[in-house]
């Protein structure tokens, strides 16, 4: 039982971090980045190469992942988002979906469709913790998710850059009148979210292996986490992520593994029907 909870939390932690990534970009630029989860996949493949070919130590690999994620994030904003400003959300959805497809397609071309084992965290015995069995890397992921969600939440509320993104998100024009350069904020958000999620690659990859379509299910499940928690809320993203992870793992255990995605899907439909703004989201009224 406790083992199952640990498993649910460790899976949920990944969703939580991807959901945090969605939020970072959404708050700063009002874009829903369909390709966000692909950055975890990128990180996993960078870790694969770094570990098996270059034999880099873990901390160097994590930095390298973050760097690659940051660069690709900046490229995405610059090439696929920037030019669309003011042309409606649909074009952004199409181009970010394009980026997602391009990234996972390139991974398929370069590394094939078979999952690849990553060398980090590969030979570890499970720990006994609070009466359940859990891998060290899983504990690390759970802690990482909580730390990241809290840290990003605090940074957003307490620092100038964070406040500036919240303000721009609320009123772009008024933000410009305070001297806030929304274009730089948007690039910054894509870079930060890209770096953060790619840095997670080695941890996630240790669990799931590096595979080209790793980002696909992650993308939708992190979206469910966000739908539960409410767009723009970091607390909501973390809690939503853990809820999705627990629902998934418990339904896999008690109903069978083919149910694990379906229950999450049903959960999404219910959330959208019953609390469309999420638990921590705010309803936004619109008038003429």
């Amino acid at each position: 039982m406790i083992t199952t909870i640990w498993a649910g939390l460790s899976v949920g932690a990944i969703y939580a971090i991807v959901a945090v990534g969605y939020n970072i970009v959404y708050i700063a630029s009002r874009v829903f980045n369909f390709a966000q989860a692909q950055f975890v996949m990128i990180g996993a493949f960078v870790a694969l190469q770094a570990g098996s070919v270059l034999n880099l130590p873990l901390w160097v690999t994590i930095l390298l992942c973050a760097l690659v994620g940051a660069v690709i994030g900046a490229l995405e904003e610059f090439l696929a988002i920037r030019w669309l400003r003011g042309r409606g959300a649909h074009n952004e959805l199409v181009t970010t979906l394009g980026v997602a497809t391009l990234l996972s397609g390139l991974a398929l071309v370069l590394f094939g469709s078979e999952p690849n084992r990553i060398s980090y965290f590969s030979d570890q015995a499970p720990l006994d913790l609070l009466g359940g069995r859990v891998l060290f890397v899983e504990v690390l992921t759970i802690l990482g998710a909580i730390v990241i969600a809290v840290a990003v939440g605090v940074i957003t509320k307490r620092t100038m850059i964070g406040l500036a993104s919240l303000a721009t998100s609320e009123d772009r024009e008024a933000g410009a009148l305070r001297g806030i350069n929304a274009g730089w904020l948007a690039i910054g958000a894509f870079v930060l979210a890209g770096a953060l999620l790619a840095a997670l690659g080695p941890l996630v990859g240790a669990k799931t292996f590096a595979v080209f379509n790793l980002g696909d299910l992650l993308a939708v499940k992190a979206f469910v986490a966000l739908a539960i928690g409410g767009f723009g809320s970091y607390k909501g993203a973390a809690i939503g992520g853990f809820v999705v992870g627990l629902v998934e793992v418990f339904s896999a255990r008690f109903l069978g593994s083919e149910w694990q995605n379906i229950t999450v899907f049903v959960l999404l439909l219910l959330v959208l029907l019953i609390i469309p703004n999420g638990v921590f989201g705010r309803a936004t009224g619109r008038t003429v």
Binding site: L79, A80, W83, L84, N91, E92, V94, T95, L97, G98, V99, A100, T101, L102, L103, S104, G105, L106, L108, V109
Partner: peptide, 17 residues
């Protein structure tokens, strides 16, 4: 065949833009 996914991805980006 192998390149279909990256190709579609590029199509979406270029088409959307």
């Amino acid at each position: 065949q192998d390149w279909s996914l990256p190709f579609f991805g590029l199509l979406l980006i270029v088409g959307g833009l």
